[in-house]
Amino acid sequence: MKWYIRLFLFCFILFCLIQVLSILFMPNKSNLSQFGVYNKTKYELLSEENDTIDVIFLGDSLIYSSIIPAYLYNKYGFTSFDCAEPAQTIDNTLKYLKIAIESQHPKVVFVESDVIFRNKDNKIRRRNYMNRELKNYFPILKFHNNWKQIGQGQSVNALKGYKINIKTKGIRKDVLKQREGIKNSNNKSNIIKRNKKVMQEIIDTCKKNNIKIILIDIINYGNWSYERNNAVAEFARENDTVFLDTNLIEYEKKIGIDWSRDTKDLGKHLNLNGAKKFSDFIGEYISEMNIVEDHRNDEKYSQWNKAYELYLKKILK
């Protein structure tokens, strides 16, 4: 046999093996035929039982670094999911929302407001794009760790879209002083017309489906300014929508973020410590809205207890 045919054959068999394993390792295989392998890997929410998610968080890395659904469930009783991806564009936010509400009827949807400023083609999105796509085509790369759940019945997605990061790379004290010195401004950043239109469609979709929508800017360092805040706040007012900017100093204090300990990359994203603090803040905020139920004693939601246990095993106590 010629060497290149041999090589091709080797790769083909390997490809088949990986595909078979991918199916075996997928969480909640009952939904498989409905949505197909590709979608379930990219849109993890599709692995959840229908009509079981109360709150959906849409957006970029700030979402999946800051909100821990399993932790929220255990502490506040409602179910949620981080439907986020690195540098999510507003078009993908809309797409994910539409896919999500096919199988879920959430009470609240949070949309990270950064997506409104993002161009369709940006550097962060291009970074690691191929690696991300690889995981979509070979789901085993995403769900390989499910081997730990073999023999424990149906496998459960423990993190519900959250991405654990235990690294700490805090901000030096002298840099922190600069943040406190940011002056309030009445200027507004520019929001691309097209993005405004898509955001309006997101808001309309939610309203049509009787879902409360909240624009949220998740606490971070360096990517926030009063100009951005002003622009989103005005847009929210015009569209009769709530805008929650957790970067404002009043919220920063309430959340209790310690920038020397609670960030993994000099303030761009929170680490596990920070995510717990932020989840506490958002948990209380949602609970006070009185529109979500406590499912902790509901048999239908028993897999969430398992998810929490698995989450505890995954995190570093």
Partner: peptide, 11 residues
């Protein structure tokens, strides 16, 4: 592929 320490939770 299966036992590699990559993805969420690993550093």
């Amino acid at each position: 592929i299966i036992f590699g320490a990559y993805g969420p939770g690993y550093v």
